[in-house]
Design a protein around this nucleic acid. Structure first.
Length: 290
DNA sequence: AACTACATCAACCGCCCCCGC
DNA sequence: GGCGGGGGCGGTTGATGTAGT
């Protein structure tokens, strides 16, 4: 690494900190349209003042349609403890056993409470009691690594056997169970298409929020089954347009609206919207990361 | 009600690996 | 084979929320 590397982006020109709902909408709608063939150039194309890595992280950890939100079940927690005994801090490897869970989330869960619990279990010599194959979860999992995993890292086999670990069966054989019923357009088809950058940048920079709300609506609409759901989403979209100002007299692009609204105001608006619809509609925007 | 300590988790940072040139 | 850049990963931080006093 001699000489160091150039930073991935100009830190002085990128926004940091929590993502605003408007930024989320912009990122989602961009990826929905174009995929994410190149993270470093994505922020510019999407009109976001963010580092490419930041966009990638936000997408992978929160905005991806198949991200599973909510608390970990006991079974998941037990499994994490076992997998950690096997793989150590290889969070991405552990996460690969949990469809919809991210390495960051698993890492957080481990650091916050599972680490302590694991230590407690060790101290009490209680692990075998809690994690015995007779438990409901353990009865459903395989007690051996895949051949690929075993051969790829012999040390793992040793530690696995030492820990008596129980591993989840190849999750690739299981049907995925996304928490949200949304389905984004596959991004792969877009990745091969080169963008006309000038046009794309222009259209995105000048796109009013209203347009992006329309995009969201297009995305959600096919998923709605009952009239009730349809009504709730319509109400949500109306509120969104009203509250975020896309129907305002000036018709400003949301970039300008961003500047006129503080993050606290935006969050309050989104919380208000979510509070109104989430009790009625299980796939409310807040439930998939907006 | 006010303050403090602790818990949680989203996001950033920096390093490493891999791949294309 | 060497180099540079992008993607991915793990560690850490800091803001926010919550419980306890």
């Amino acid at each position: 690494m001699g000489g160091g590397r150039s930073p991935c982006c100009d830190k002085s020109k990128v926004k940091k900190g929590p993502w605003s709902p408007a930024e989320d909408v912009r990122l989602v709608s961009f990826i929905q349209k174009h995929g994410h063939p190149n993270w470093p150039s994505l922020p510019k194309q999407a009109g976001l003042l963010r580092c490419g890595k930041s966009c990638r992280l936000r997408w992978i950890n929160y905005l991806r349609p198949d991200v599973k939100r909510g608390n970990f079940t006991l079974e998941e927690e037990h499994s994490i403890i076992h997998l950690h005994a096997t793989f150590g801090n290889k969070w991405s490897k552990i996460a690969s056993h949990f469809p919809g869970r991210t390495d960051n989330e698993i890492k957080n869960v481990w650091n916050t409470h599972l680490k302590k619990r694991s230590l407690l279990m060790k101290n009490n010599n209680d692990a075998t009691k809690i994690l015995t194959p007779s438990s409901s979860f353990a009865s459903n999992v395989s007690n051996e690594l895949t051949n690929q995993e075993k051969t790829s890292d012999p040390k793992l086999t040793e530690s696995t056997e030492a820990a008596g670990a129980i591993l989840v069966e190849d999750i690739n054989d299981q049907p995925s169970t996304p928490s949200s019923t949304m389905s984004f357009k596959s991004s792969n088809s877009c990745q091969d298409k080169p963008l006309n950058h000038d046009e794309e940048i222009k259209s995105n920079l000048e796109t009013p929020l209203e347009y992006e709300v329309d995009q969201l609506w297009d995305m959600l609409e096919p998923q709605l089954v009952t009239d009730h759901e349809m009504l709730e989403v319509e109400n949500w979209v109306k509120l969104l347009e009203k509250e975020l100002g896309s129907e305002g007299p000036t018709g400003q692009p949301d970039d300008q609206n961003d500047q006129n609204k503080t993050m606290g105001e935006e969050q309050a608006i989104w919380c208000k919207i979510s509070d109104q619809i989430s009790p009625l509609w299980p796939t409310s925007p807040m439930n998939f990361g907006f």
